[in-house]
Write a protein that binds this DNA or RNA. Sequence first.
RNA 1: CGGGGUGUGGCGCAGUCCGGUUAAGCGCGCCUGGUUUGGGACCAGGAGGUCGCAGGUUCAAAUCCUGCCACCCCGACCA
Length: 490
Amino acid sequence: MNTFSAKFIAKKSENLSQWYTDVIAQAELADYAPVRGCMVYRPYGYAIWERVKTLLDRRIKATGAEEAYYPLFIPRSFLQREASHVKGFSPEVAWVTHGGGEELSEPLAVRPTSEAIIGVMWSKWIQSYRDLPIMHNQWCNVVRWEKATRPFLRTLEFLWQEGHTAHRTEQEAREETMKILEVYRSFASDDLLLSVLSGKKSESQKFAGAVETYTIEAVMPDGKALQSGTSHFLGQNFSTAFNIKFLDDDDIEKFVWTTSWGVSHRIVGGLIMSHGDDSGIILPPKVAPIQVVIVPIIFDENKSQILETAEKLVKILQRGEYQEEKLRVKADLDETTKPGFKFAHWELKGVPIRLELGPKDVANSQLIAVPRDTRQKVPLKFDLSSATFEFDSLYRLLDEYAGRLKLRAKEELEKRITETDNYNDLKEFISSGRGLVLAGWDGLTETEDMVKAETSATIRVLKNSVSSDSVKCIYSGRPAKYLAYWGLAY
RNA sequence: CGGGGUGUGGCGCAGUCCGGUUAAGCGCGCCUGGUUUGGGACCAGGAGGUCGCAGGUUCAAAUCCUGCCACCCCGACCA
């Protein structure tokens, strides 16, 4: 296998942070905006986000949620109604105090999340058990005034989807919470080809206002966890705070049970870091804005023949369908750059398959297919006169490529998790950046706080609860209530 | 928000310590022309900078002083 590393980006294995900012700039995904902590999506970066949206939205709609849109501004008094919610979010809310040249009588929060304004609306709309469940999802931007920011992973303004549901019973709301967690897990696994841990958050890590928070956590190459999606069971915290009541069929007025859940553009950052290599980013076929790029190898004597063939092949290939969507194909017909430049360029941008078309290939009615990860060359036959192409082989290459990415992600995740019952081991694993540690926890927040103070590690996600006395808490030595994944986080 | 670092054509940097004729430089990129083209081409010519911003010191400031802003790294906080 040939290996090439890009000239203008840091080596991923040597300096992940630098590599990350380098590829974002060089692959033209995003750029820093003139406003602190804000980024501009460049078209290629936005195209990736659009793919993420399309794929996740499909899964969300399949659960029965409808798309809606609520306003950007939330009156201060609304935000303040749920005590722990306001406590959790107030340090990072941006406020609008003036409008139209005059001071507002009540400041407006730029939404950090929309539970509050949705709660106010739903208290109007929900009257009867027949109005339930109500399941809304919106794709929007939110603002959280973070101190330290990084493109995609943490920006002041970020893009996400937030789903909100209200249910007649506690059980139904709990089921919804878990259903969405599984939507997120399978989306990460099957669409983004990421391996994630999923499960419950500890008390100290849960969403402000939630009864329980569930998460999918990815583990980055530097061993730090990336919270990539959360699903919250909100109990009746918001329905009591916002007075969302319904009359049940037993003629008794009851508060609804609510959930909320979100995935942000942060997951694009996780995608970049997880799959990329020294040549740039590597995109899963479903997410790639361009799945196949044709690079003609042009010589003077047969230039027009090659270019014409390339153009015809794009038209043929665009008729292809892969995984129930039109194949996304591009031909790089620029005559001012050499093939080697184009190879490097499209590898940087993570295009799954490159098709090389040179004079020798035209003579043989074939293209040379080169997958982004292995770069192992495979000839694919075509016939211009009958406008046919060896689609099955191309699809197989894409399938195999996706399979390799997924397998590698799975192996990497396993490699970055160590089970131990020795606290010194935990300290050692965390400080050396080897990843997450799976160990017992006595369920006490004090224990979590002490471990955090000593190691900076927090409980990223609870694997499962423990009933037997044989498992001890890694810190206190008391019988463990949970097996927990401990680690540093983004 | 703490600790450290950096801001000089589009990008990456030298020059700053020790102010002045090294009186704005280099590499890449960009433009024009030509030769090239199976892994980031070469030659020739050319365009492009009030040195992050605002004050101050001085005969003189990219260089010294003060304040501010932005970005990067390491922590703390958070999706």
